[in-house]
Structures are given as C-alpha cells and as structure tokens.
Design a protein around this nucleic acid. Sequence first.
DNA 1: CGTCAGTTTGAGCGAGCTCAACGTGAGTGG
DNA 2: CCACTCACGTTGAGCTCGCTCAAACTGACG
Lengths: 268, 268
Amino acid sequence: MPTDDIRWIDDRGRDNDYNPPELNPRGIIMEAKCPHSATTVNCNDCRMSALCLPMALQADEIDRLNRIVERGRPLQRNEYIYHAGEPFKSIYAVRSGAVKGFTVNDEGVEQVTGFYLPGEIFGMDGIGHPNHINSAVALETAAICEIPFSRLEELSTQIPSLQRHFFRLMSREITNDQQLITMLSKNSAEERIATLLTSISARNARRKLSGSRFRLPMSRADIGNYMGLTVETVSRVFSRFQKQDILSVDKKEIEILDLDRLRSMANT
Amino acid sequence: MPTDDIRWIDDRGRDNDYNPPELNPRGIIMEAKCPHSATTVNCNDCRMSALCLPMALQADEIDRLNRIVERGRPLQRNEYIYHAGEPFKSIYAVRSGAVKGFTVNDEGVEQVTGFYLPGEIFGMDGIGHPNHINSAVALETAAICEIPFSRLEELSTQIPSLQRHFFRLMSREITNDQQLITMLSKNSAEERIATLLTSISARNARRKLSGSRFRLPMSRADIGNYMGLTVETVSRVFSRFQKQDILSVDKKEIEILDLDRLRSMANT
DNA sequence: CGTCAGTTTGAGCGAGCTCAACGTGAGTGG
DNA sequence: CCACTCACGTTGAGCTCGCTCAAACTGACG
C-alpha cells in the first residue's frame, strides 16, 4: 500500500497551471484574478479541472457536466454549505477556499470528519440517505460548485467513465476514512499532527502551491477535534516541533523546515 | 441523525425467514440445512436475500444478478478471501459465518477495519484502486458469495435501482466509518465495547437470531484492535460489565442481561 | 479602550497502556 | 490416556501520555 496515499492526500491531481491569487499592496484580491469569482468560471477553464470531476472526462463530456454544475456567490467564513438534516440534493466541489465537514451528535458535540481544499469533492455522506448526515461550513472565503446528485447519477449512466470515476471517489473516501481510523487507534499526538501537516503540504504541492510554506485554514480546535486531541495538546505539539526545528509556526502560518523528519514521524 | 444507524448496524434488513442451523446431537451441521452449502443456493432462495444486494431488486433482476454471482466452497477459519495487494476483481457477500477485514501497514501492524456478518457486503475498499487495500479472512467456517465487480458495474448501468442501491451501500460505508472515527476520538473503553455489543446484538436480531445471547466470532485481540484498545483493557471491561450484571460472559459466549443499560452507555 | 475568540503554557491527574504472571482449553504426539 | 504445547484470556502493579483545569497572552474588532 502506498504510504502517501493517505486520508488527506488525494492523488486525483495531474499538472495544472494554478497560481496563487495576486494581491494588491493592501492585500485585497484583485477583481480580474479573483479565485472566488462565480460568474466567469466554467468547468472547462476552471483551474481545478485537472483535480476535480472533469479529470475523468473528454472535452465534450466536460461540457455536459459543466451544464449541470451550479455556481453560487462566494461564501464567507462560517457560512454553511449544507446543514445535517437538510434534504440531500447535491454534492459539492471546492473551487477556492477551504471547507470543514462535521457531524453533531445528540449531545451537541461536534466531530470534524474532513477538511476539503480546492479541487476536492465533498458531501458524499448524503448519498445513501434522504437527508445530509454531516454539515459543511466554509473555513474562509470560498467558492463552491454545486452538482445536483440526481443529474450526476443520470449522467453517470450515460458516461461510464464518470460512473467509474465516481465509484472511485467514494471508495477513496472509504479507504481514507479507514486510514484515519488506524491513526486514531494507534498513533501518538505527534504522529497525528505530522500526518496532517504532510498531507496538507502534499495537497498544496499538487495544486502547484508551496508545499513548505502555507496557511492552515482551520483553527487549533478544529485540528484537535479532527485528530482526536485537545486544543492544548495540538498547541504543545506545534511548540515542540518548533523547538526541534521541524516547523516554524506563526499562528496559522506554517513553514515546514524539515519535511523528511515530519514524513518519517507520519509514516506508520 | 438516528442514533442506532451506527457503523455496524446495517438497516438493509427486511423480514426474512432465517433460522439458526439445526444441529444433530453430536453438534455436526446437518447436510440438508447446512448454511455453508455452496451448490444448492442461489440468490432467489438464499436466506439473506432480504438483507443483501437483492433487496433492491425485482424477481427478474435478482435472476440476472444471480447469474453473475460465484459461490465457492466453504472457507475454514483463518482462510483468506483476498489479500491486500491482490488485483481487485470482486466484491463479496457473507452468506454464513463471519469475516474480518483489515489492513497491514509497512511495519506489519494490523488494523481491523470491520467485521462482516451474514447478509453484509465487503471488499468495497478495492473499488477505487487496481489492487485490494485491505485483506479479509474468515473468522469461522464461512460461505461467501463473490460478485465480479466489472459485471456488477455493467449490470448497474442497466438496472438503475441497483446502481442507486450500490451508491447507497458505499455511502453507508462512509458514514459508518465516520461514526467509528467519532467513537475512537471521543469515547471511553466502556462506551466502545458497549457500542460493539449493541451493534452485534442488533445485527443478530435483524437476522432473526437472538439479540441477547450470541457467540462473538472474533477474539479479544481483534476487538481491541478494532476499537483502539489493548487486549487487557477489553478483558477488563468485559469483567467489569459482568460484575455490574450487564453481561454474562463465558469466553466468546455472551449473554446481554441489561440491554437498556448497555444501550445508554453506547449512546454518544 | 475593553471585549472576546483563539492560542499558549503550566501543574496535576487519571484512563488506559506496558510488563509480567498465571489460568484455561483445544490440539498433538507419545 | 496423559503430558506437553500453544494460543488465548484474565488479573495485577506501576507508569505515561494526553486530558483537565487554570491562568495569561495575542490580535481583531467595536
């Protein structure tokens, strides 16, 4: 089993020409290149097409997919994409920003089930059920593509490679979850954090962003929740990694100084 | 979210007429009713048809499914159904006995990913990959139906309800795994064991077997591995439950004396 | 300037782990 | 038939990692 095909590493990617959004001196995202723009984008010219559903498709098929995709306005931090209990209608793709998936149990305790970065698909939890099981919120300003599931299902029966790709996505979700299960039952706090960081690093690299310097879109609390740790433990592990010159941490800005060491801790 | 739709409780079930195998005085399973018999069974008269893939199908469709199902000889304890790394060709259904699914990581450490009882489908981990990610072994003498995936995929494009049912199965696998993840990151040893026992109880009840008296097909080590606990902790929890008159334990024979209490511990 | 959410750091505790010894029953070979 | 082995399970003693509780810090925002 390839060890780097773990939960958060989706090797759907091929090369693409994604570049970080350009900022003007005041840090405001410029209109023309805004990665959250809703109206100008379709699947054909989307920067994520090589990572997303279109990667399985031919030009004319992408066009058919494109016609069923709905693109809403950009979402702000903490806006919901869907709530648990809502009727399940669609699955979603992240075009920009970051999304957190989570469940809330009867006692109101939250469990983070995944973080989704650009080019990744989420919302598949609802497929087997009338309503969504999970909820999903934007962790930061985000552009999301909505793909009505019934129409995708229909299209799948017509485009076998889409059906196959979709089976593959769901299966990958299963094996990913199982690898998280392994981690939660066997790995130490340091191993868990190391695994999360190498994962995010690899996913960024796949989007042609830096794999060694990036901004974590989620809070320490979310990380801890996801990895089965308390906030305090997450914070302590970050501090320890910094003392050991593995990381340089400044709030959410992370620089990986020793990726090899991080990888070898993550490897289990 | 319905709290009893958890990992191991597959509510695929409708009523069926399953009864325990009849034993002659020496405990040898009688030929005519042997639940492991390979040759005499097809999907139409299989006792598990109401729990298994056929539940989504009409009579003529079951017939078409039946024609692609392969039934081998019964497997003995510890025999593999498939090994990790083998080419992925089929998914499987348990007709009788019990199966353990697990991964082995680079260091040779095993992680149990699931237990499968009669009427349940396994092997879906391989779908997105050329080779199997997990391995699967029989925990006791077991009869297994093999369903070649490429033919099932083909049949799915022709029978929409089968495609939908199959999506549903995979999605359920995802939400089930996510509930296990929640348990592993938040629940105590007692809560975990309570959850496992109520699950097996419910699954037995669905097969019209006793939900209060049953034999665990797996070892303490397997339970511990699956639940992220050591053997010693599992054993101690069983002892504690027995002292509290929640269970009566005799090796693998379990009698649940206070299902309500067990359920309330499992509820999280 | 105060407030508030998020983060960091310290001190102490406890659930579950490790290590070790012993018990039990099924299988095997003499 | 017994003696032996071996896998599996139980129980005890002590330790440790991560949790809990508490306090203080930081930066964003009104």
